[in-house]
Design a protein around this nucleic acid. Structure first.
Lengths: 115, 115
DNA sequence: CAACTATATCCGCCTATACGGATCTATGTC
DNA sequence: GACATAGATCCGTATAGGCGGATATAGTTG
């Protein structure tokens, strides 16, 4: 029960929910998230660390960049409720806005790396 | 998104999850919850108030007793993810223990009122 | 190794909220 | 109205965690 509560605590912050909704589209690095969310780097990194500690996302280093992506299966929460929570996220207005910004950002970046 | 985050915040405390898992069985009053959870009245009432403010439960007065029960449909979260979260709750070890205690408590009480 | 960039972590500050005993309020009973 | 009981709220205390600028660290490039 305590573990389940920890997962919900990880989900109890708007910024973290926004990050998760963006990661549904695929892995992103810290720069990407900073650009889309318009938040300082320390804030983004802190939330990513929180989500990683809760095992909701995993990271992968590629050179200087850290790429984060959603964990598809969680140790505690079963797959069905987890996926249905994620799809619920996408239905939020804020998620739509953020995804539009992400799309625009990706177009401009056009496959290039950050930096 | 903020509202969704508020719901998760309400779910981010172990005691509140235990209360919700008990309420799945049907409405209970504060005395019942105190007895089963073995927690002081102020603690139980505080968590119930938190859950009510988050619209996860509703209350009903009957004489001196306040009965609380689960809200079946939430304004923000759709029914499917909500129900699947609730069923996830029941799969936790702590929930099994608590439900056993509740069952025992109800047997002893045998339909009587509190007090 | 020096310089640069991406990211993680530290720091001080501030708010939210957990706890449980004490008190207030509402209701029922005599 | 006096009293008892259920429950809500208040209180002081303690901790978690949000914020974002500053600093530390890790990898890349010359």
């Amino acid at each position: 029960m305590k573990k389940l509560a920890m997962i919900f605590k990880a989900l109890s912050d708007e910024t973290r929910l926004r990050i998760l909704s963006l990661l549904i589209q695929g892995e992103l690095c810290v720069c990407d998230l900073m650009a889309v969310l318009q938040l300082p780097q320390s804030t983004v990194s802190r939330h990513l660390a929180y989500l990683r500690n809760a095992n909701l996302i995993s990271d992968r280093r590629e050179g200087v960049w850290m790429y984060y992506c959603l964990e598809e299966k969680l140790p505690i929460l079963e797959e069905q409720p987890w996926q249905s929570l994620l799809s619920q996220l996408l239905k939020q207005e804020q998620a739509e806005t953020d995804l539009a910004v992400l799309k625009q950002y990706c177009t401009e970046k056009n496959g290039a790396r950050c930096g």
